[in-house]
Simulated assay, not measured.
Amino acid sequence: MTSPLLELPGAVPPPDGSPDEGVAWHHGDPLGEQRAADRDVAVVDRSHRGVLAVPGEDRLTWLHTITSQHLLTLGEGEHTEALVLDLRGHVEHHAVVSHVLDTVWLDTESGRAQGLLAYLNSMVFWSKVTPRDATPELAVLSLLGPGAGEVLSRAGELGGFVRVEAGRTDLLVPRDELTNAWRRLVDAGAVPAGSWAYEAIRAAALRPRLGIDTDERTIPHEVGWIGPAVHLDKGCYRGQETVARVSNLGRPPRRMVLLHLESPDTLPVTGDPVTAGERVVGRVGTVATHYELGAIALALLKRSVDPTTPLQAAQAAAAVDPNSIPPDTGEPPGRAALRRLRS
């Protein structure tokens, strides 16, 4: 789906093969757009994301049983994240979840909505829910920066609904009003920004993206989704056994870290290997040029890799940002309990 906002003056489309095909890559000054998003306010077109709607009186109890998130008490106007896992606990789907107007709205990665909808429909059985593709109905815009609230106030009512998340404010606006909503936000003071700016800021904040920072073996613990998208104190759902076992008895085999890349001229691409000498120790996820940090990448590394080890991300020399290492939470609770029983 190609956004009508790509036709506006200054909008530059992404390079071939981009996961953000259909929306602007930048609007002429990608580093300046990041600066505005960090210090003031920028608006990003994310209308290529898929949107699903789940109305019906069983919407919360049903979604609670088939996803990783505790949804029974999700109130009107509240938002969260959720995953769908396979039987072995690997991540298949990620969605941002909003409960608005007696409907649960799920927005997910471009190209992933139909797969998620197929799974939801396969699990309906006798439940009173009617999942549908709502991508033609709603489009996602995101405001980044400390000035988002002021811009929203000046722009006025835009239709749809607003979702305030950590580090951003999402607007799900009527798709046929997308261009009008964009213009009103820009007129209210938001700087137009593209996916380059959004991805650089997301990577620097260590926020994973499905299909970019994950592969077919990723479990939620590896990318920081325990908590934001996985609730550890809820009933059974597909893949929960792995989640519980790793949380209580072990540690994930890999962890997502931020890499600083030596040269912007030899950037790796998503999926490239990360090596230590001759040994493959991880994979590259998001790659971006940040306005302050320079060339960076998210990567899934084996937990056994010493963070001080010199690395290569494809042809680029790389170093782990020590501040990106997940904190050591100590001995897993289940293992500690077993040790006490044996002592």
Rank of each mutant, 00 (worst) to 15 (best):
M256K: 08
S247G: 08
R303D: 14
V246A: 07
T275S: 11
A288V: 05
D233K: 15
A317K: 10
H260D: 12
G239R: 14
H290Y: 12
V257G: 02
L300C: 05
H260N: 14
L258V: 09
S324N: 07
V243D: 01
P322G: 11
L293K: 11
A318E: 03
T218R: 11
Y291T: 13
T242E: 04
I226T: 09
Y237H: 14
T309M: 04
P264E: 15
V281D: 10
R245K: 15
C236K: 05
V287N: 06
D272F: 02
Y291C: 10
P273M: 05
P228T: 07
A316R: 05
V223H: 08
T275W: 01
L311T: 12
L293I: 01
V287R: 04
A318L: 03
R217H: 06
A317R: 13
G282I: 07
T286C: 05
K234H: 05
A297H: 03
R279M: 09
L259K: 15
A313F: 06
A316Y: 03
A295P: 14
L267G: 07
T286W: 07
L311A: 12
T286N: 06
A244T: 14
D306Y: 05
L232F: 14
L232P: 15
I219E: 01
R279D: 12
H260C: 06
G235H: 08
H290K: 05
G239N: 14
V305W: 04
W225L: 15
T266Q: 07
H221Y: 05
R238T: 14
L301D: 05
A319D: 02
T308P: 01
L259P: 13
H221I: 03
D306H: 09
A313Q: 04
V246N: 10
A318R: 02
W225E: 13
E278K: 12
G285K: 00
V269F: 00
A313L: 07
A276W: 14
Q240M: 11
L258H: 11
P252L: 09
P268T: 04
L232C: 13
M256N: 02
L301Q: 06
T286M: 08
P264W: 15
E292V: 15
V320F: 13
Q315T: 13
I226M: 11
P252Y: 04
E292W: 07
A318K: 01
R217Y: 00
A297L: 03
R251A: 12
V320M: 11
V320D: 13
K302V: 01
P264D: 15
V284G: 04
A318Y: 04
L311W: 12
H221R: 02
L258I: 07
A276E: 15
L301F: 07
L311D: 09
P268L: 02
I219D: 00
E262S: 10
I296E: 03
G239E: 12
P220W: 08
L293V: 00
